[in-house]
Design a protein around this nucleic acid. Structure first.
Length: 532
RNA sequence: GGCCCCUUCGUCUAGCGGUCUAGGACUCCGCCCUUUCACGGCGGCAACACGGGUUCGAGUCCCGUAGGGGUCACCA
C-alpha cells in the first residue's frame, strides 16, 4: 500500500512554525516510504482572497524543501494531481453528495431547530448536565420537513450520532483510544445555504485523496470520533491516525499561537531573536510589524537569512528524537531515520535560542562561496556596494566573511558590518563611541593625526594585517604610548563603531587609502565638535 | 465545568525493571587556548511533580493526588 499523507492549511497569509512541523512529519512519513505528500487547501470558510493568502504558505514550503506531490500549483491559482482539485472551495459538490448519502442512509438528518438548539445547549450548561439534543426539530420525512418549513424554519444537516457504546481506535502515537458515543453531539455538517463544514469535507477529501495516515496535532484528537463516524457511515476505509503534540509557547506549555506575539516578546530569547530580525529587516525594507514579521512565522527566518535546513532540523527535534545523542540530520538522514514511534507525547516549547544554535551550526558548515551568495543578497537589498578600488564586490565580501568567522550567524548579519561597504564620506560615526574614544581622551585627535601621517608613508604592499600590526606597534613605541591609547580611537575612526573583529584585519580589508580617508573625516568631525 | 491528553535539568530530550551515584544538546558559569573578540578544548551548576502500591529491586509497571494543557461552533 502506498503511504499517502497530507497537510491541510487554511489560507491565512502566513506559515506558522507549528504547522511546518506537522507538515514535516507528514512529509517524512510519506517520502520515506516512497509515497506521496499532498497539500490540500482548507478554504471552505475563507471569504478572503485565497490566492494571495495562500502564496506565503506555498513559498514557505518551497523554501524549506518540503515539496508536495499533489496540491496547488506554485502560484496557488490551480491544482496539480490526479485527484484534484485540491481546494475545498472547489469540491463542494462532492461534500453535498456525501451529505445526501448520509441523509439517505439515515445517519444524518435535516434539523430545523435553529436557535432552539443553542437554547437547549445553554440550558444544559446551566444545569451542569451533559447536553443531549432532544431532536425535537429533527425531520426524517418530507412531511415533517414541510411542517417545520411552514413555521418558517430552515434546515441544516446534522449527524445522527450514536447514543450508546464507544468509539475505539488506535492512535499511532498515543495508543488505544476510547470515547463514549453519547458524549458526541449531533454535529452540523451542512449549512442551510448548502455549504459544508470542516468535518464532512475533511473526511470526504481524505477518502478521495486516498490518505492512508492522518498525522495532525492533538487538538484534533477529540474530533476523531465524529470523523470516524462520518467515514464509517459513508463506507470508507479508515485511515491510520497519529496525533502529534502541539508546539508550545516559549517557556510555557500553552499552545503556540500567532495571536500572542506580544506576550512572547517578554521572553528573553524570543525577544532577542525578534530584535535581531528587526535590525536586519529595517535595513532591507521590511515593516517591523510583529503581527506579520516575527519568529513564529516561517517567513521571518527566510527574510533574515536563516538556512532552511537549520529550521527543518530544529523542528524535527521538537517532539522527536532518534537516540540520546544525534542532533544533526540531513534530509536524507531524516528520511531514513524518522518514525512515528519515537514521537514524544508531551508538548514541546519553542526555543528561539536553540533554533539559533542550529542556524549557527549550519552556517559554520556552509561553504564560503555560498555564504557569499547569501550575504550578497542582503547587501544588495540594503543598497550597499562600496568596495576598495580595483576590487570586485564578491571577492571583497568573501574576504570579510572569512575574517568574520562565526560572527555572521544568519546571512543578514552581514549588515552589522555595513561600514565595509559604504563610501568613506557616508560612514556614520556612532555618537557614543565617538565621544568616548575621540572627543573625551585628551590628545586623541593629535595622536591620530600623527598616526595618519605615518600610515601615509607605509608602502602599499605592506598593508596586510600582520604588517599593519607591526607598524602600529612601532608607532606606539616611538610615540611612547600603549596600544590601548590609540587602537580604540582608530577603530571608531575607521569603522564608526566601538566593536568589530580584529583591528588590523579590519584595516587590511579596508585598505590604506580608505583608512586614511576615514581618519581624515573623523578628525574633521572632531574639529567641528571641539569648535562648538 | 464535562470529556480527553500530558508530566525526567531553565529548554529540547535519552531512558522501554537492575548497566541510573540518571546520559546528550542548547543556555549559563569557570578554566585553558588566543596580544583583543569569536571559535575551539576541558570542567561545572542543574531534573526523575507528589503519595501509595506491585517487585528481591521502580525514572521505568499499577492506582490515586497535584500541576500543566487541549477540546467542547452553522471555525478549521
Amino acid at each position: 500500500m502506498t503511504v499517502r499523507t497530507r497537510f491541510a492549511p487554511s489560507p491565512t497569509g502566513y506559515l506558522h512554525i507549528g504547522g511546518v512541523r506537522t507538515a514535516l512529519f507528514n512529509w517524512l512519513l510519506a517520502k520515506q516510504a516512497g509515497g506521496q505528500f499532498i497539500l490540500r487547501i482548507d478554504d471552505t470558510d475563507a471569504k478572503r482572497n485565497v490566492a494571495e493568502a495562500l502564496q506565503p504558505i506555498l513559498d514557505g514550503f518551497r523554501w524549506l524543501g518540503i515539496d508536495w506531490d499533489e496540491g496547488p500549483t506554485d502560484d496557488g491559482a490551480d491544482s496539480v494531481g490526479p485527484q484534484g482539485p485540491y481546494f475545498q472551495s472547489q469540491r463542494l459538490e462532492r461534500y453535498q453528495q456525501a451529505a445526501i448519502q448520509l441523509l439517505e442512509s439515515g445517519l444524518a438528518y435535516r434539523d430545523y431547530s435553529g436557535a432552539d438548539f443553542v437554547k437547549e445547549r445553554e440550558a444544559a450548561e446551566k444545569a451542569k448536565t451533559n447536553f443531549v439534543y432532544s431532536r425535537n426539530w429533527m425531520a426524517e420525512s418530507d412531511e415533517q420537513a414541510a411542517a417545520f418549513e411552514a413555521e418558517g424554519r430552515t434546515a441544516v444537516v446534522r449527524l445522527k450520532m450514536p447514543r450508546e457504546g464507544k468509539c475505539e481506535f488506535t492512535d499511532l502515537i498515543r495508543g488505544e483510544q476510547s470515547y463514549d458515543w453519547e458524549l458526541e453531539p449531533d454535529h452540523v455538517i451542512q449549512r442551510a445555504d448548502g455549504t459544508c463544514l470542516y468535518h464532512l469535507a475533511n473526511v470526504v477529501d481524505d477518502h478521495d485523496f486516498q490518505i492512508t495516515h492522518v498525522v495532525r496535532a492533538v487538538e484534533h484528537l477529540s474530533n476523531t470520533p465524529r470523523q470516524i463516524f462520518i467515514a464509517q457511515s459513508l463506507g470508507y476505509q479508515l485511515p491510520q491516525y497519529a496525533h502529534l503534540p502541539y508546539v508550545a509557547e516559549p517557556g510555557s506549555k500553552k499552545k503556540l499561537s500567532k495571536r500572542n506575539i506580544d506576550k512572547y516578546l517578554h521572553n528573553k530569547d524570543f525577544k532577542r531573536l525578534y530584535q535581531a530580525g528587526v535590525a536586519i529587516g529595517e535595513r532591507i525594507g521590511i515593516q517591523p510589524d510583529p503581527s506579520t514579521f516575527n519568529p513564529v512565522l516561517v517567513d521571518f527566518y527566510r527574510d533574515i537569512g536563516f538556512l532552511p535546513d537549520a529550521v527543518v532540523n530544529y523542528l524535527l527535534l521538537l517532539g522527536w528524537s532518534l537516540d540520546d545523542k544525534t542532533e544533526f540530520f540531513s534530509k536524507d538522514e531524516m528520511l531514513q531515520q524518522f518514525s512515528l514511534e519515537r514521537v514524544v507525547k508531551a508538548a514541546a516549547s519553542f526555543d528561539a535560542q536553540k533554533l539559533t544554535a542550529f542556524q549557527q551550526h549550519y552556517m559554520d558548515q556552509l561553504p564560503v562561496k555560498q555564504k557569499v551568495n547569501r550575504c550578497l543578497k542582503f547587501l544588495q537589498s540594503a543598497d550597499l556596494a562600496s568596495t576598495p578600488p580595483d576590487c570586485d564586490l564578491g571577492t571583497y565580501l568573501q574576504t570579510i566573511i572569512v575574517a568574520a568567522g562565526d560572527r555572521i550567524c544568519m546571512a543578514g548579519d552581514i549588515l552589522k558590518f555595513d561600514f565595509f561597504f559604504v563610501d568613506d564620506e557616508k560612514l556614520v560615526f556612532e555618537e557614543k563611541p565617538f565621544q568616548k574614544r575621540m572627543v573625551k581622551p585628551e590628545g586623541a585627535g593629535e595622536l591620530l593625526s600623527q598616526f595618519a601621517d605615518a600610515l601615509q608613508n607605509l608602502p602599499d604592499d605592506q598593508c596586510d594585517a600582520e604588517q599593519l600590526e607591526a607598524f602600529v606597534n612601532t608607532f606606539c613605541e616611538s610615540a611612547s604610548i600603549g596600544l590601548g591609547d590609540i587602537i580604540h580611537a582608530l577603530r571608531v575612526a575607521t569603522t564608526g563603531k566601538a566593536a568589530g573583529f580584529g583591528m588590523f584585519e579590519t584595516m587590511a580589508i579596508l585598505g590604506k587609502q580608505r583608512c586614511l580617508n576615514r581618519i581624515g573625516l573623523a578628525l574633521t568631525k572632531l574639529q567641528t565638535i571641539v569648535a562648538n
